[in-house]
Nucleic acid binder design. Structure first.
Lengths: 290, 290
DNA sequence: GCCTAGGTCCCGTTC
DNA sequence: GAACGGGGCCTAGGC
């Protein structure tokens, strides 16, 4: 029995199921009319309404309305769930310390309670992260600029860890900040912080800073320019067009618009819209619902 | 009927319920063994496992495992949900454009499907935000420093909008950056950005920068010091100890350790642990479950 | 435990 | 629509 459900249960019956489920590590959903109160890092209260509440065995609790991706209220993992009946309400309380915070969900009506046995061993595999961009740069440092030689990643400075630290063709220190997506002013400021910190380590060596990302906003570009920092446009994963066959030694083969290299190669991005058209066609479905 | 549930449905029966629910704006949960594939701003794939899937009428979809607050996969509001049966699987697809991205959940086994009618008009009321801190500062500018006169909020600069802009007792421009919680290096960098931008607007006027937050990390404090910026410790909501009875004209009554005012009042925070002890006692419960 | 930064961040607001 | 910054951000990785 992987899913145990009660329809329109009494508060007491719902309580018994919650007792069991919290005890043996099952995940629980409740749906009904409730109010929610939170006190901790901030304080909030939510009047009555129909919501879906999810309690996870790791101590997470989520309160979802019919809108938005974020729960209207929640508690992160590590909390302790407790349920009780009082004042004619089923109350689910989730608490933790460090920081001290508490979430109370009080149901005046419960439409459904379900306890699920969950078995999930699969790990998510994800591509397109900053980590992928880092690997791409280390595989082919010329993507940053001709002659760039990486020397360290996550190199510590007084202002924090630098993504990629190295030397340019002239032997000057180079600070590289990587972003998986289009960057704004904060990334420019971050790079500036690191460059200033490294500059104090290597006085009079002319430390340089390069922001590597798919694209950059106008204001961020201006901030970079004012501070003598560079931008280079690189996607976290290679575009499908160019074959990245080589084993890391391939140097800037088909850079397209071979413009001025070195400092400023930023062009607007744009999703390119070239969606792979070779997916399964929808008309082949047995049945379809929208 | 606010909740319609199918237990161990056939793919086709589940499909019909999804059809109806997507059509009339109901929220849906599915639980069963599925794989998940995502392609859009990044790309991911997740092997088979038991998960809870939530489809909201606003186009949100969430895939939750038994751990963590964040869904392992998701699609934000604005997407279009479609369901179909093919290859012996029930597939729920959620798509959108700008950016183009698609999420596919393929169930090999469905333990339960439920459609909910949701009515929720209540708005969350939350206290302790940066907005609250801003109001507090505007009510009592002396919390920043004696003689501070706020002149504008969200004042635009070349580097972005400044939280509070004003003058100090000597008539010098002051840039104030507010944070509702303990600040790190990025906040120091943000303040520096703004101060530099304002400095170009008012050359030779000695523009000052003040970071206002509950507390500050050591490294951020160093960064501020190196750049001649100040930190002032203020909580987003007044502590329960001091009575903030006055109507905005109260000036720094009981600041506790009346140390050196003006520049650096940073001490470590600590939640103070003084939880209100006047809540309902647990032993008065009708019934309790942990 | 705190610190630091990334994220398919989400989200509201403004332009 | 893009951009910019807040968030009870969450989460991972170091120390």
């Amino acid at each position: 029995m992987t899913a145990t459900t009660l329809h329109r249960p009494t508060h007491r019956d719902a309580l018994y199921l919650l007792e069991e489920a919290f005890g043996d590590g099952r995940m629980v959903t409740l749906f009904g009319r409730c109010t929610v109160d939170y006190d901790g890092r901030a304080t909030s209260s939510l009047g009555p309404g129909d919501r879906l509440v999810v309690c996870k065995p790791d101590g997470t609790i989520l309160v979802h309305t019919d809108e938005k991706r974020k729960p209207v209220n929640w508690q992160p993992p590590g909390c302790t769930h407790r349920a009780s009946v009082r004042d004619g309400h089923l109350r689910v309380r989730s608490e933790r310390s460090t920081p001290t915070e508490r979430l109370d969900v009080a149901f005046e009506r419960i439409d459904q309670v379900t306890a699920y046995e969950v078995t999930d061993r699969s790990d998510l595999r994800l591509q397109g992260s900053e980590e992928d961009l880092r690997r791409r740069i280390l595989d082919d440092p010329a993507l940053v600029e001709e002659g760039f030689v990486p020397q360290a990643t996550e190199r510590e400075t007084a202002a924090g860890p630098v993504d990629v630290f190295g030397e340019d063709a002239a032997g000057r220190p180079v600070v590289v900040e990587l972003k998986r997506r289009r960057v704004g002013p904060s990334a420019a400021g971050q790079l500036q912080r690191y460059v200033e910190a490294v500059d104090e380590e290597f006085p009079d060596e002319g430390v340089r800073g390069v922001l590597v990302a798919p694209s950059v906003t106008d204001r961020a570009r201006e901030l970079l320019a004012e501070r003598g920092l560079s931008f280079v446009a690189v996607e976290p994963v290679a575009d499908e067009g160019d074959d990245e066959s080589g084993d890391g030694d391939s140097v800037a083969k088909a850079e397209g618009d071979g413009g001025d290299d070195g400092a400023d190669a930023g062009r607007d991005d744009g999703p390119d819209a070239g969606d792979d058209a070779a997916d399964e066609s929808d008309d082949a479905a047995d049945d379809t619902a929208e």
